[in-house]
């Protein structure tokens, strides 16, 4: 599984290239992986409390307790 994950980006290496000067659109707020980062952090917290699975969201879970 892990090996496949490492290979996926390598497969792209030869066929795509975005130059630094072409990153204008990628630099906008709405193109971030998590444009609403604060709410995403809270959300993933809520989901980890309310649901049985967690992880691989690239976000911040952060300890917790709430009664």
């Amino acid at each position: 599984m892990k090996k496949i994950f490492l290979l996926v980006p390598l497969a792209f290496l030869s066929c795509t290239h975005v130059s630094p000067y072409d990153k204008e659109d990628l630099a906008t707020q709405k193109m971030l992986a998590k444009p609403l980062s604060e709410s995403a952090a809270f959300e993933s917290h809520v989901f980890s409390i309310r649901e049985g699975s967690f992880g691989a969201e690239g976000g911040f879970g952060g300890g917790c307790g709430c009664k």
């Binding site: 390598l10 497969a11 290496l13 030869s14 290239h17 130059s19």
Partner: peptide, 14 residues
């Protein structure tokens, strides 16, 4: 194969 891909990726620009 990986090496070739890497080299290709890096050598597109002058």
């Amino acid at each position: 194969l990986l090496l070739t891909l890497l080299i290709l990726g890096f050598s597109l620009n002058a």
